[in-house]
Design a protein around this nucleic acid. Structure first.
Lengths: 123, 123
DNA sequence: CAAGATAATTTACGCTTGTAATCTGATGAT
DNA sequence: ATCATCAGATTACAAGCGTAAATTATCTTG
């Protein structure tokens, strides 16, 4: 299931919410990020429904929307696709690339060091 | 400059070659990867020309094509975009994600350890 | 119950992409 | 000089996407 860039903004709102949301709340949540007409967001919601990425539950006159596709699964699809297409599926070259381009902060460095230690212990 | 998925296959052939290539060589190089008609590849070449991603130099009856956009720059655009959109621009969470999903091989692990040591020394 | 408000569904439209076929212009052979 | 060949340029066409307006269905209120 392929989610477009614009659609993913709508998913983001849903993922951030513990409960199912009405369209209005989605519109409100996106108001400061995106400069979209409410109609645009309705379109995106409908496309996501057709793709089966979200679910609608009737609530009186309106619907409450809830993600079916999990954020983690989506992250997984997107990032694995990039990893495979651009870095032969290997993480180290990816990190090396970011390192060459100054995208590795001190904070990243220390977190990575910690992560790697943990993994060492495990195996 | 945005390169589409199909277009990037053509770029890959050009990036892999030290010298500028005629369309026929690109077609030949893609023959086993992709099941594309030569006409399709001609279209992609033209779109890349229009986007300014490649350059054509006349050679008698035909042209020799050469990348203008470097592979490194393209990698940079693509991966920085993913990093920013999905991981708040931070590398450590990206790696943690791959780790959770078993995309970190032993080899990655040891390369990462080495890379991090090197960086420690530098700063 | 009729009218107005409101939420959802349908339709719209131009651009990009994947995938080609067709047309045109240059080159080589007769 | 003419014609066939072949590379490149133009055109095609459906699907997906960003962006939204128009239409329809559904409550609410008088």
């Amino acid at each position: 299931m392929r989610i477009s860039e614009a659609e993913s903004q709508v998913m983001a709102v849903l993922w951030a919410s513990a409960v199912a949301l009405p369209a209005d709340d989605i519109v409100a949540a996106l108001a400061d990020q995106q400069d979209w007409q409410p109609a645009t967001i309705k379109t995106l919601i409908n496309r996501l429904l057709n793709k089966g990425a979200i679910d609608a539950e009737r609530d009186g006159r309106r619907y409450l929307y809830r993600p079916l596709l999990s954020r983690e699964d989506w992250l997984q699809q997107e990032s694995a696709s990039l990893l495979d297409r651009l870095f032969g599926g290997r993480v180290a070259p990816l990190v090396a690339h970011f390192s060459r381009h100054q995208r590795l902060s001190k904070r990243d460095l220390s977190e990575l060091r910690k992560l790697i230690e943990t993994l060492d212990d495990d195996r």
